[in-house]
Design a protein around this nucleic acid. Structure first.
Length: 420
RNA sequence: GUGGGUGUAGCUCAGCUGGUUAGAGUGCCGGGUUGUGGCCCCGGAGGUCGAGGGUUCGAACCCCUUCACUCACCCCA
């Protein structure tokens, strides 16, 4: 019989990692709440149309990376490849813009993209996603970037590099795009095959090509920042100055483009050196036209996504965070076993972690098990102790052993555990 | 979708130019202590050598096919 394994690119999160996920989620909720963001949970599947309209028909994500299938009534559904579209859909659907001028939301959960897996890249992966609607002033850009950096820092990451750029808006980006295409066509022969393809498909992508020859050419390419309209330019310089006020250091990367079509004005990325080729731990930007594109009101928005697995991969290895057990009960003989079974579960009902060995093996084996479970105390008793109405309580660290009257044993144990 | 690397015990890995019962460390179970854990000593269990085919007297090792994992490209968190 063949073993059934997990789907390629889908990973089990084993207990040790699950705990780290839990810890980071806990920090995320606390930080985001203090900045006024509230959690929303949206379905992991949406109508395919939603992603086509938001992410862009010609992006790689939509063209070849989505898990899309026909439902039984032949409607096309897609496992979400990112969260922004779903959050905006919910924002529109529940008329949240009518509720308050500014809406701050975050969501945490799995995303799906059918890419070839590699370090830091999986087909199912988790993102922490934050969105802010209804505010276009540069303060909101700076605030959300500041919050992101703060969150990553107190999660335990260091050596982070924040890069920002402005991608312009529908008023100024087209002239830049044209200038880029013109420039690239001028030196088309010297570009790598990928970039030649990109000239037509997605010209801005040429900017982060890793081929050296392309890099040399691109160094002289037009820069988006020279093409910004006065509104975008003003916005961008204010974002910079506000970030400076918040002591948030950054680099301007005029060659940074973002993969999704909907970004306008501010775009940002956080990079780390601990991830191999997939070095972006978080990325985001402003998307002022997206809400209305999806059928909602004219509401500006800005947001970011953190790669959960990538974040955790950057965290320093921490050692002894072993699972702890308050009490192990070593029972010898049938009568003691029966009593231990009740005691173990009563203790659990009181909120303490308790374990025992149903196998009724040697005391040595049971103590070994207690040790393995990292228990603070072990209660030891057999027929002799039951007859004498006195049981033994062993402190596993100090090896001290005391006798405890069997009468009122539960309360006595709880008291001792609490005192520890 | 394209390219490179790797598949041997639960885990990490040895295994020489092909040679007969495939090893180590660690983990697991037991014993040394008839009722006392960690350290130490001793013993045991655990493998269709990723799968299928081929070459050969003989294959973990060579050849072909295939699958999986992994890294990188593409792209992205």
């Amino acid at each position: 019989m063949d073993k059934i394994t997990a789907i390629r690119g889908f990973k089990d999160i084993l207990p040790e990692d699950a705990r780290r996920f839990w810890e980071v989620e806990f920090i995320a909720r606390r930080v985001f709440n203090s900045f006024g963001f509230r959690e929303i949970r949206t379905p992991i599947m949406e109508k395919t149309e939603l992603f086509k309209r938001s992410i862009g028909e010609t992006t790689d994500i939509v063209e070849k990376e989505m898990y899309t299938f026909a439902d039984r009534d032949s409607e096309f559904l897609t496992l979400r490849p990112e969260a922004t579209a779903s959050v905006i859909r919910a924002y529109i659907e529940h008329n949240m813009s009518a509720d308050q001028q500014i809406t701050k939301l975050f969501t945490i959960g799995p995303m799906f993209r059918r890419e070839r897996p590699q370090k830091g890249r999986f087909r199912q992966f988790n993102q922490i996603d934050v969105e802010l609607f209804g505010e276009d002033r540069p303060q909101s850009d700076a605030e959300i970037i500041f919050m992101l950096m703060h969150f990553l820092t107190i999660s335990g990451l260091n050596n982070l590099e924040l890069e920002i750029n402005s991608l312009g808006c529908p008023a100024c980006r087209p002239s830049f795009s044209q200038a880029v295409i013109k420039f690239l066509k001028g030196s088309e022969e010297k570009l790598c095959p990928d970039c030649r393809r990109r000239i037509n498909a997605n010209p801005l992508r040429v900017f982060d090509c890793k081929v050296e020859a392309c890099g040399a050419i691109i160094a002289n390419a037009p820069r988006i920042l020279d093409f910004l309209c006065s509104d975008c330019e003003n916005h961008f310089s204010q974002v910079q100055s506000l970030l400076n006020d918040l002591n948030t250091s950054f680099n301007i990367n005029s060659r940074m483009v973002r993969g999704l079509d909907y970004y306008t004005k501010t775009a940002f990325e956080v990079k780390t050196n601990a991830l191999g080729a997939q070095n972006a731990v978080a990325g985001g930007g402003r998307y002022n036209g997206l809400v209305s594109d999806l059928g909602g009101p004219e509401v500006p928005g800005i947001g970011f996504a953190v790669g959960f697995e990538r974040l955790i991969a950057c965290l320093p290895e921490e050692g002894s965070n072993k699972f702890k057990t308050d009490l192990f009960i070593a029972a010898l003989g049938a009568k003691a076993q029966k009593m231990a079974f009740g005691l173990t579960n009563e203790l659990r009902r009181e909120g303490f972690s308790a374990e025992m060995d149903y196998a009724d093996t040697s005391l040595k084996a049971q103590l070994k098990k207690a040790d393995k479970l990292n228990s603070s105390f072990t209660l030891i008793f057999g027929d002799k102790e039951i007859d004498e109405k006195q049981v033994l309580l062993r402190n596993m660290q100090t090896k001290d052993q005391q006798t405890v009257p069997l009468d009122g044993i539960l309360e006595a144990i709880i008291k001792i555990i609490k005192e520890r």
